[in-house]
Write a protein that binds this DNA or RNA. Structure first.
Lengths: 192, 192
DNA sequence: TCTTCATCGAACCGATCGGTACGATGATGA
DNA sequence: TCATCATCGTACCGATCGGTTCGATGAAGA
């Protein structure tokens, strides 16, 4: 049998699959660019199931953004920690994975920042603020390790380079080159 | 009499007023966040007039973005040129006006970049690309004047700082401080 | 076996949207 | 004076949207 009619699989599995599909399509076409009905059809679920899991479209969006923020943060953190304790090596590793990301054919900028741009409402603004805070924490650590005079400021400046590089990679076709330029500027900041 | 019923004023004046109102409300609430009917009501015009001037909502959006890009470019250029020929003074002037902008209570990031994020279609992407090109031209000029080794790269890095500072000012409540941090980093880049 | 529960699929709802059509109104220029 | 034109206001259209409801179906646990 292809798909069961009743309770098909693990409910948690269904929920995760919805999150995955929604994350992809929201990122590619925007939060208002895809409807609930189409989204449900794409994962073979019914609206009722979606609304039981997420309550509303905004609830789904919030869950999507939170999951994506967690995933990106883990990804960047892992790259930094795999590079060891040296500040230069860690920063190089971070912009290295960013460069990979920028080069993906479906890259469309930062999904969390993009979403907050489309929905000027509290939940989205809160999630993007926390997302940036986690970046900031990492960059401030790196700046501290590098022994710069004002690690907090250098952390903010590194974060600006990251976000700026993301915008240029998206809207100016720079791709990997954006990450390289940003890294070069970041290394200069670390040297003081 | 409050408002005339027939051809009220200069048609060009009506068009400009529509552009102004649309620019504001699209910026504050997003392209999909405001409908044509409400927009027309807010300027006391009829839908027929709007569609005669702009053809479609997308046509209106395109005109709004183009006008805003021109206005921002002129604003930044004027600030740079008023600062004289010195590279440091010019860069300081540019981030000075950016800091003012970031401090405005209704600041919501770069309207052109935001719009391109909401509409992944060609016209918007083209306008944002040209918008960034004009920034890049200015920053490359400044880098050249400063005598850095690779003015094109430094120009891109300065643009990243601008876009990154814009994102942080919007989503992290940094306001003017974002411009100051970005300027400090930019000055370091100009020194090589 | 019987009950409970998650699920599907489809119908349905009210609201809103972008866009069009039309009659009435008044300003402009011949 | 008369025709032209831009405009308003309103009604209307088809489509789409987020969200709800309901009967049928089947899996899991008592």
């Amino acid at each position: 049998m292809p798909v069961a009619k009743g309770s098909s699989l693990d409910p948690a599995r269904t929920r995760a699959e919805m999150l995955r599909a929604a994350s992809l399509v929201f990122y590619q076409r925007g939060l208002d660019g895809v409807g609930i009905a189409e989204l449900c059809a794409s994962v073979g679920a019914s609206k009722e199931t979606l609304y039981r899991h997420f309550g509303s479209k905004d609830g789904l969006i919030e869950a999507v953004l939170q999951a994506r923020s967690d995933r990106v943060n883990a990804w960047i953190r892992a790259a930094a920690e795999a590079a060891g304790d040296d500040a230069v090596a860690r920063l190089t590793a971070v912009f290295g994975v960013l460069g990979q990301w920028y080069s993906e054919p479906d890259f469309r900028g930062c999904a969390i920042v993009n979403a907050a741009t489309q929905r000027h409402v509290e939940p989205a603004r809160t999630i993007v603020a926390r997302h940036l805070d986690r970046y900031l924490e990492l960059f401030t650590e790196i700046a501290t390790t590098a022994g710069v005079a004002d690690p907090a400021r250098v952390g903010r400046q590194l974060l600006m380079l990251l976000e700026g590089a993301t915008v240029l990679a998206d809207h100016h076709g720079l791709g990997q080159a954006a990450a390289e330029d940003a890294l070069a500027a970041g290394l200069l900041l670390l040297k003081g």
